[in-house]
């Protein structure tokens, strides 16, 4: 059967042609193609890896940002509280100082009032005794023979004056 008898001529040409094809493609075709296919495969793998890493770091930085924000809020609150505390403290101190000052003034005023009252009393006594002396003089002039009753009366007058003051 011719179908099952390989022809020498065709074998020869097939061998030549196939080796030629293999030569051409192995020189100009496949090395570039396989290199690029492999390179692209690694590139895609790396890209996926990179994307995953980026996603993870994004999530990480988001949590970090949230933590920083919470910290800032907490500090702000603290500062506000401190300020409020400081304010009330200052007000208290000022109040205390003012009260002390006022007390000092009042005390000084009281002392000076007392002093002037004493001075006035002294002056008044002197004036009263002057008056009394004058009255007594007048009485004595009127009734030189001063009796006891009259002296008593003078005394009584003096006491009354004292009581009135």
């Amino acid at each position: 059967m011719e179908l099952f008898m390989p022809e020498a001529g065709l074998i020869f040409w097939m061998f030549v042609a196939f080796v030629l094809l293999l030569g051409i493609l192995a020189k100009f075709g496949w090395p570039t193609i396989t290199k690029m296919v492999d390179e692209r495969a690694t590139l895609i793998d790396k890209g996926v890896e990179y994307a995953e890493a980026a996603k993870a770091s994004l999530e990480d930085s988001e949590t970090q940002a949230r933590a920083i924000l919470a910290e800032a809020n907490r500090q702000q609150l603290e500062i506000l509280q401190e300020a409020a505390q400081m304010k009330s403290q200052i007000i208290d101190e000022a109040k205390k100082a003012a009260a002390a000052e006022a007390k000092k003034l009042v005390d000084a005023a009281a002392i000076s009032i007392e002093q002037s009252r004493k001075e006035a009393e002294l002056q008044f006594r002197q004036e009263v005794s002057q008056f009394a002396l004058t009255i007594a003089e007048n009485i004595i002039r009127k009734e030189l023979a001063g009796d006891k009753a009259q002296a008593e009366m003078v005394e009584q007058l003096l006491n009354e004056l004292e009581h009135k003051n």
């Binding site: 065709l10 042609a17 094809l21």
Partner: peptide
């Protein structure tokens, strides 16, 4: 022969398929 000619044509077609990719 016909098969040898077809062989050459096949080889040209294969080159035209593969080399543009490279």
């Amino acid at each position: 022969t016909k098969n040898v000619a077809a062989l050459f044509i096949t080889i040209i077609v294969v080159c035209l398929c593969v080399l543009p990719l490279a």
